[in-house]
Design a protein around this nucleic acid. Structure first.
Lengths: 127, 127
DNA sequence: CGGGATCCTCTACGATACTG
DNA sequence: CAGTATCGTAGAGGATCCCG
């Protein structure tokens, strides 16, 4: 999301919605969070799960998730390095959202393709 | 979200999640959808609800929502113009997601502030 | 293994002005 | 009222190389 850090909290009820979305609107964030629902993962494990994400971006997204308090990062002082990522309680609290998203996606996309097939140029002159 | 149009559907289970997020990741989309949950709204009504959105952006977001099949646009051939926006059945099917988002936001942000100071430029004009 | 540093591109977002 | 047209910007996202 370029500018999509939904960070304005001066709006009406939609505010909460925007704020919540703002935490998962990174290109890979939702997927990362979703995979972390299953348990702790190491950096390269996430990489393999997500597919096509570059190290830089994954680090970036993980750092933001960490800064948002959704993900916890545990570094083992070893060599070779070992870093584990897991959901914080706050991150775990997003499970309903993640599941709702997956549920919707499974129903509306997995079955018959993505919705973005409609024609924008549609004028209803009824009534 | 610069590049956050999550449009790749070639990933594993996270795929559905990403796809669903991709439909609401526009800066104003989630808020617009949320407000449309309450019923049909006219262009400037949405503008007033959302606050701070420019006509251009609102049009843009509405057009994408329409193209994604989430929102329906009804134009009345009158003068002055009258255009009504409402949720399509598909859009309505996102209600659980929207509510989950709002619920999370209300709980985790409304109470004790946002989890992270995302935006440097705070509320300057609304004060 | 798990990143950091650099450089670059692209486009979502925004300000402003105008119109049928 | 409900947009459209232009122009400009930031910064999210990406490619590549390197490091402890």
């Amino acid at each position: 999301m370029g500018k999509v850090r939904h960070s304005r909290f001066d709006c009406s009820p939609g505010c909460s919605v925007e704020a919540a979305v703002g935490l998962i609107d990174g290109k890979w964030k939702s997927v990362v969070l979703f995979h972390l629902l299953s348990g702790t993962l190491r950096f390269n494990e996430i990489r393999r799960h997500v597919h096509n994400v570059t190290p830089r971006m994954l680090t970036n997204q993980l750092r933001e998730l960490e800064a948002d308090g959704l993900v916890e990062r545990k570094v083992y002082a070893q060599v070779p390095p070992k870093v584990e990522y897991s959901l914080s309680p706050l991150g775990r609290s997003m499970e309903p959202i993640l599941l709702a998203l997956k549920d919707w996606g499974d129903t509306n996309i997995g079955l018959y393709g993505k919705p973005r097939a409609t024609d924008p140029r549609e004028v209803s002159d009824a009534a």
